[in-house]
């Protein structure tokens, strides 16, 4: 039993994570639903009364209760992993990444699950923190709905079904991600 716990406490390799993600996708299909997390942003808009001012949100969000509960489960899962399964939260990123991030002024890259200096409420009161969370979050919410899905809906579910639309969406994800990482983030982080 102790061996098992020790085994679980190590960082999980990519093939374990990929396999579990595929199983989760299959389970959701088998239960008569589908795997797509960004739909919950739309569900929340509807829950908050968005249907009164915009017909895009005028639907019965109660039919999406399963997805909202799945989402609630992910929060609990994050809590369990953080509390009980992470003896040390260092992320084993490559040396090249560590060097690049140090050059951009990120302190202790890989220490903690996210950069501590950026992911704090104090950082929200700095220009870069404000842009990162407010603009970044907005782009995620706007872009996923425009594209009709996020990583789970397009990159996993859509590509698994060999949908050409999802391939275009994933190409878009990478165009945006590469432009941000290579061209914009260096400026943002030096603000």
């Amino acid at each position: 039993m102790n061996n098992l716990i020790e085994f679980i406490q190590q960082p999980w390799p990519w093939y374990v994570a990929g396999t579990i993600i595929a199983i989760v996708m299959f389970a959701l299909l088998y239960f008569g639903n589908s795997f797509g997390l960004s739909a919950n942003f739309r569900n929340m808009c509807s829950m908050l009364g968005g249907g009164r001012s915009c017909d895009f949100f005028d639907f019965d969000w109660r039919k999406q209760t399963w997805n909202l509960l799945f989402l609630a489960g992910t929060v609990i899962g994050g809590f369990i992993a953080h509390q009980y399964l992470m003896p040390d939260a260092t992320i084993a990123i490559s040396e090249a990444t560590v060097a690049d991030l140090q050059a951009l002024g990120i302190a202790n890259p890989g220490e903690g699950i996210v950069p501590q200096d950026l992911f704090s409420f104090e950082s929200l009161f700095s220009l870069k923190g404000l842009i990162m969370f407010v603009v970044g979050g907005f782009l995620v919410g706007f872009g996923t709905r425009y594209a009709g899905g996020c990583t789970s809906g397009h990159a996993i579910s859509g590509l698994s079904d060999l949908q050409p639309a999802s391939l275009v969406a994933v190409i878009g994800f990478f165009i945006g991600g590469l432009v941000m990482t290579h061209l914009l983030l260096p400026h943002l982080l030096s603000l």
């Binding site: 872009g143 999802s166 878009g172 990478f174 432009v179 941000m180």
Partner: peptide, 16 residues
């Protein structure tokens, strides 16, 4: 739709 929407999401994904 997928290219523009996807690119907008990608920008936000890499930022956050």
């Amino acid at each position: 739709r997928y290219l523009i929407g996807g690119t907008i999401f990608g920008l936000g994904w890499a930022m956050t």
